[in-house]
Amino acid sequence: MTGDPTRRRDRRARLVLHVLLGLGLVAMVGPFVWMVLSSFKPEEEIRRVPITWLPEDPTLANYAELFSRLDFPTYFTNSVVVAVLTTAGNLLFCSAAGYALAKLPFPGRRVLFGMVLGTIMVPNIVTIVPLFVLSSNLGLVDSVAGLVLPFLAQAFGVFLMRQFILSIPDDLLEAARIDGASELRVFWRIVLPLCRPALATLGILTFLASWNNFLWPLVAATTEDTYTLPVALALYAIGQNRTDYDLLLAGSVVVVLPVLVVFVLLQRHFVRGIATTGLK
């Protein structure tokens, strides 16, 4: 124990912070914990009012039903392929376009950025019919390409990357250019490494959005072979007059796992980018 008053104050502040964040954490995780616990309960117990937390008699029956009734490998593979391709495409195309919009003056830049912003603001539902007609004419219906292409370059990602790249100091890029680096090299060797936290964010959010997307995969698939997990789960768990909560919760737990894995893996990249590059 040192008698250093600043350190002691720091420690006390840290403790207070832990208590506050911990309390907040309890409020945040409640529904998730209930979802996981309830996936081991029979339907009757899930439906009780007021709700119960620990399962009286834990059962794996919901999971057994999920894996036996659904052609799980097919839907899972479709979901993974679509989400991975969509995420990879957005990371690449949006960071390149975001860089140009933030740091490279070119004619049409403002128009393009305006259009990008504008389209984020149009509700998806109103464009679904034209998008389907377009996909149908391009022969994309009922294919993985049809599920991926419309979301491969999204306005949201460009906006995100542009905003992050704006905060990279120009001197850093200028220094590299003076050293004779090509724009591609500047982008690849300087901008992208500095964007790690932003790329991680974009990866997390794009993967999640693609993974959970429901309406488009439903509309764009005309056979069961191209259904993704959320579509299949809705098919089997949500009926006309009843919802099977047992199947739905077990399915939700399975569906959420890959998203959490992606989050845990990518959130490690929330590390300081600029300080480590030795910026003067």
């Binding site: 389907f132 996909s135 149908s136 429901f214 309406l215 509309v219």
Partner: peptide, 30 residues
């Protein structure tokens, strides 16, 4: 060849299929 369709979104699916001329032979309708 049967394609099961979730109730949730079925109406939208049939609407868009008609617009894109990608309908099956037979469909169940509410």
């Amino acid at each position: 060849i049967v394609t099961p369709v979730p109730w949730d979104g079925a109406h939208n699916k049939i609407s868009t299929a008609i617009a894109g001329r990608r309908t099956p032979d037979v469909t169940m309708l509410g």
